[in-house]
Write a protein that binds this DNA or RNA. Sequence first.
DNA 1: GATAATTGTTATGGACCATATCAAATATCG
DNA 2: CGATATTTGATATGGTCCATAACAATTATC
Lengths: 173, 173
Amino acid sequence: MTVSKTAEKSAEKAGDGTRGRKDAPEGLPEALQLGELSEQLGYVLKRAQLKVFENFLHCMASLQLTPAQFSVLLLVEKNPGRNQTEIASTLGILRPNFVALLDNLESRDLCARIRSTNDRRSHILVLTDKGKAVLTRAKKLVATKHESRLNELLGQANREALLEMLSKIANEF
Amino acid sequence: MTVSKTAEKSAEKAGDGTRGRKDAPEGLPEALQLGELSEQLGYVLKRAQLKVFENFLHCMASLQLTPAQFSVLLLVEKNPGRNQTEIASTLGILRPNFVALLDNLESRDLCARIRSTNDRRSHILVLTDKGKAVLTRAKKLVATKHESRLNELLGQANREALLEMLSKIANEF
DNA sequence: GATAATTGTTATGGACCATATCAAATATCG
DNA sequence: CGATATTTGATATGGTCCATAACAATTATC
């Protein structure tokens, strides 16, 4: 360990129990300075993403849908007749990891695998009637509880600008 | 499984081998429609975050620093003399999971734990001289290779607006 | 028709996250 | 003071997500 003496000294000085700001009322636990961290896009991006997912899960509690499950339902609805490989790769999910995800949706009768008659290796994915109904309800929940709150917070125009910039990063970075 | 007959039929129709758009030149694998997915902030946010982290790791390959490790070094530099609990909780890392992270940084002589003389339970965290030097180089790499590329892509003003909106989500959502 | 490639699947390991628990040290309160 | 509760760092453990290798069945390619 090669800690400079000055480092040790300043550390002990800063950590000596009464580290309130000058003339602080009492020894209340002072908040740390984020410093340059709050300027790091990656850091803020990750924190924001966690918050958004957390709120998504909360809004979807009644339907028990995770963001990943919701995205699968949306994509299968928009692209009926595609197989697992196509749906999974579009979502950036590796085929092996997509199996359990689908098993879950299928066991809940939201999605169905159908053996293709053209290529009997592949399973064609379709939403069940229940899956369509659940997805419809899910969309409503997302719109009224989730996205609407983001609109409140940012404003409609800002939210659209945010989406556009994030898309740019996701696609062109 | 309750798949309606119409669902099965449309699925087979859409999945019948030659699923090019009308008068497509050849049977080239047609891209899936993202549909409403590209309007879901959570989805785009996650994709963007993965891209940013991926690029960060690439830029930091020479220093072998992950985003989490970089954030620890930044926070310890800005707040010398704090203990593990304070640094970890500020970063949203649980104490048990912070131990291995610190073990790594300490084994590479970037960070040091110092037993506090005031409270002999806690370990005060300090950057070593090597840690300071590495962090300085890391900051330069991030600025010149990572954040600069984001500025290219978005423009300075947009990048700042993006950061502000993400902070708002991270803190007020 | 032999070989290569694709599809879904399983097994497996790593990274990250969360909870319970522990010993040592300290704080609290009778 | 001394008994009890709390805090700190640490370990163990389990869950989830992500990545790779390998396999049988099927299809494509030559």
